[in-house]
Structures are given as structure tokens and as C-alpha cells.
Design a protein around this nucleic acid. Sequence first.
DNA 1: CTGTTAGCGCCTTCAG
DNA 2: CTGAAGGCGCTAACAG
Lengths: 324, 324
Amino acid sequence: MSTATVSRALRGLPNVSEATRLRVLAEAARLGYVPTPSAASLATGRTRTIGVLTPWVNRWFFANVIEGAERALRDLGYDVLLYTFDVRRTSSRRRVDPSVLRHRVDGTLVVGLPLDDDEVRSLVGLARPLAFVGSGPADQVTVRLDDVATGRAATRHLLELGHRVIGHITGVPDLVSSWSPPVERARGYVRALEEAGIVVEPDLEVNGDFDVAGGRESTAELLRRRPDVTAVFAASDEMAMGAILAARDLGLRVPEDLSVVGVDGHDLGELVGLTTIAQDAYQQGFDAALLLLEMINGAPVPESLTYPTELVRRGSTAPPGAGG
Amino acid sequence: MSTATVSRALRGLPNVSEATRLRVLAEAARLGYVPTPSAASLATGRTRTIGVLTPWVNRWFFANVIEGAERALRDLGYDVLLYTFDVRRTSSRRRVDPSVLRHRVDGTLVVGLPLDDDEVRSLVGLARPLAFVGSGPADQVTVRLDDVATGRAATRHLLELGHRVIGHITGVPDLVSSWSPPVERARGYVRALEEAGIVVEPDLEVNGDFDVAGGRESTAELLRRRPDVTAVFAASDEMAMGAILAARDLGLRVPEDLSVVGVDGHDLGELVGLTTIAQDAYQQGFDAALLLLEMINGAPVPESLTYPTELVRRGSTAPPGAGG
DNA sequence: CTGTTAGCGCCTTCAG
DNA sequence: CTGAAGGCGCTAACAG
């Protein structure tokens, strides 16, 4: 029997009689035969692998998106190649160099990673399907929240409680990209303030690096600078929890002296009574992976999917001076 | 110029004159040439890729180990292929079938995934370096805590505070493997009780699925069954936080009515005042990756690395009945 | 130091 | 429906 017939049988192609197919399958199983992916990939140009680019895996949003995407891809026989690009306020991250992805992935999923125009261009230059989760450039397929609306809703919640001096803890430096979620949430924050006729003061915004420690430090700095702040909107729950720690460090009570609202719907939000705008990160990862595979299969896909959010009111927000 | 010379120049092999090497490098840069990994892999049998097998990515320990490993591997030019195998109490997980790894990875890192003997055997059968993080079979390279000592230390902390009826929230079903961290932590728990002359009661142990929701449910069940419990040792911080939620659901105060101690040193532990046995998960992932690469390079490596832990006392533990 | 020659294992085209 | 042949892009061994 020729290798060509075996190859056809194993891949379920037509033009193989049922008898030979069964014979091949049986023999392959008996021998424990496993195809060599690099040979297949060399011959076909396809890798059955998706590159996932993300700044971190140990943060709520990112971990859940990655897990959702991995499950979807695995179910459909695709492997996941993980690339992290640590993003910090203090140091600029390593540039995304897509040449490492060339001939290595059939598609790329960018998870919550703000890219500059050059980086996007170079990814597009790979000529492979590309999708973004969290946010992405306007002309690319993106699975996301309406981040402006999210920032606006969080800020309005605080305004409706009666707050007038509201701080904002944002995520990454806005130098890189004009379309990262923190940038858009900050826009929503500004818009809500303007709609309420409140003058927006730049020194009410600080950068919290998207984690607990960063939220804590930046909130401490904010409260030192502006002791008149009565509420804080953090662009993620982890930073919001850092803000609560900072308040506690300074002897302030939450929510009596400081109201705090976050974004995410973190598993531990309930435990600390955190008011938040909840989203489903796992599902976004799962669906983005499916979209990407459809693109690979040449199916038409929507330009973007926008996911719902929900304000979850808990004990970390209250009218200013509620307790004294 | 021949392809062989180009190949040698690009890979920095000897036997190439400096002049030609520079010429090759310049031309490659000009053309934007990128080698095709599948072709190299087909020719050499090596892939410069490491498979990372883990039950979850959205849990503190796992996310941090993965991130540490990814950073170490990336720095040394290796790619990370991520495979998750969801482990739950309710349903048995998909078996680990290493045939998908054959010809695809140069080594495998198993992160906190309890495997049965057959699965370990089949991984060993790949004839590629293999390392475990969290725990592993006795005869394999493992980066880990002393989990028995960890369970014992946590339980002793509760005993020293005066507790006598101490529940334990463990992680995964112990059906699969005899060497998972939760199993060993439970052993430490039992040993500490025995050393204190306390009769070990099986109905004081419940399974919390290693996450917040599971810790909450199983603690609720435990407290319903055994209202005399005054303290709980959870095998992870996330389950411990679930235990605190369960206590609160039942109107119990922590620590007055119920003391809770966990394991990990979760970023949010301080916020909720959780007493814990802290470990450095990121570093374990990082070091395990380095070990694996040394094995790939044929260097001798220690059979196992044991990491230190530290008891962090916070407000979630106190003598029984401390407040009333 | 450089070039030539065989493959690595699979897939695709074309004959039969 | 099946077989033969060529080639995917690179590396290893050997000549020169």
C-alpha cells in the first residue's frame, strides 16, 4: 500500500475505499503511528497552531480569556502557542516582532495587548487571520466590551451616589496605542464627568499597572495628592482591590470615606464587597477563538463582537460621607 | 553562495568566515528572511518548543507558574505550547494523551496536574525530558514544596491556637494519583492531628475543587455536617476565601466563630486578612523551565528542587471563640 | 572555509 | 480507487 493512500485514509479524504481505510486505521493504531506535524506543515504550509499574544497570564481577565480560547481551539484540534509581553509603567515592553510567528501559526489572537501602528501593520503583514480580544484597531476583528460605555457607567454610578471629586485608576501608559481598554474606559470616565457638568482634572487620573500592587501604590499617591477625593473608579477589579488596600493603609473606611468601583466581575469581588461592572472574559476568549478559526476556514465573520456588562452593586460604593 | 553556508552563518556555527557571515546577515535582514521552523524541525528532529500541561490557567498557582515558565523559555528562545486538562470533582477529565506531543515538543512541563501511572508512563515513553511543578512521581524531576510539611504547619498553627475540631478543604479527587499536592497536604493535616493526639475523622475532609466557588460549597457542606468545627485548613488560598464566604453565608464571623488558613500567598490574601502558608509560584515555574532546558542540553540536574514556604499570620485565624 | 548531496515525513499532482 | 514521483525548506555529512 502506498504512502499516499495511507495519508488519504488517515485524513478522511474521499477516494479511499472503506475497506482500505479500515485496514489503515487498524494498522496505524496497532503501530501507535503518529504523524509528524512539522512534515505536514512543511508540505501544506499550515500548522494547526494559533499564536496567543498577551501581556500577562496571571491577571483575572487575561487568564480567563486564555483559558476560554485554549478550550475552544483544543476542541477543534488546534494548538496554542503562548507569547507574553510584560507591560509595565516603569519600563517599556519588548516590541512585538511577528517574524517569530511566521510559518509557525495559522492565525493570531491578541489578548488585551495594546499595540502601536507599526506592530499592527507587521502582524497584518503575516497575511494570516488576526483577531483581538479586549480591544483592537478599528479595522480589525475584535471581541470586546463597549469600554467607553463601561467607564461611563461606572463613573455615573458614583455620580448618582452624589460624588463630585472622583479619581480614576487606569491601566497601562497610553503612550503606545490609542485603543486600549483602559484608554477607552478613561474616555468614558471623562465623558460622564462632562455630562454631569464637572470639570475634568488631569491630576485625578493615575496609572495602576492593572494589578493589586499597582492599584494600591497609585491610589496612595492619588489620595496624598488629592485628599478631597471621595470616590475612585478603577479600570480593573484587581486595581480596585489595591485601591481598597491603599484606603485602609491611610486609615480611610470603604465606603464611608472612599467609594471604590472596578471592572471585571472578579471571583473574589464578592468576598471584599466590591462594586463592579462585570464581564464574561472566558466567553470572550472562547468566541474569539471560534471567530479566528472561521476566518481561517474562509468563512465571513462580523467585524466585531461586543459583549454585555452588568453593574453589580456591593458594599464598596455609597454616598459620600455615608458613615460620618 | 550555497544554502549550507547560509544556514551555518545564520545559526552562528563555526567554519564560516566573518566576512561571509556578515554578508549573509545583511542580506537576510534586507530580505526579511525568516527560517521555516517546520523545515528545521523536520531535518533536525528538534522543535525548540516545550509543552506545558496544566489543569487550569485561571487559578493563582497555575497562572503564576505558567507565566514564570513562559518567561524563562522565551528568554532562551523556546516556544510554549499550552495544553489544559480541566480537572473537576464532578466529571473525570480527559486523559492525557501524549501522542499529540510526539514530534511536537522537545520537553514537557507538567504543572500541578495529577497523573495516573499509565499517563506518566506514556509521557516517559516520549523519550523527551520531562519535569513536574507542584508535585510529581518520586522518580521524576520535580520542582515543589514540601507539601506534607506545609499541611502540617498550617494545621499546627490552628492547633497551637487551641482548635480541636479542624476541617480540611482539599483540592482534587484523590482517585487519580497518589502524589498530588492536595493529597500530601492532607497527609500533613492528618499527621499534625495525630501528633496532637486528636482522632482523625474522615467527615471533616471535603473537596473544594481548588477554586473560590468550590471552597464555598464544600465548606458550607462541611459546616452543615459538623457545626462543631471551629477552624478550617484549605489547601489553597482561593478555597480558603471560598470558606470565608461560606462562613459569612451562615452568619459566622471569621475568626471569632471560624478560623481559616490557606496555602499560596495569593495577591489578595492581605485584603481579606487571610492567614496563609506562602510560596513563590512564579519562581517555581521559572526554575522548572530552566531545569528542563538543562536536561535538553544533556546537563545533569538535581532530582528535585524543594521551595521554602512561610507562615503569614493575619486576621483570619485566632483562638476558638475569641470574640464570643 | 565552502559547496554538493541526501534525506527528514508528509502532501499533492498526475497516471494508471 | 490506488500508486509513483516530486517537492516543501532546512540540516548533516562529506568532499573539495
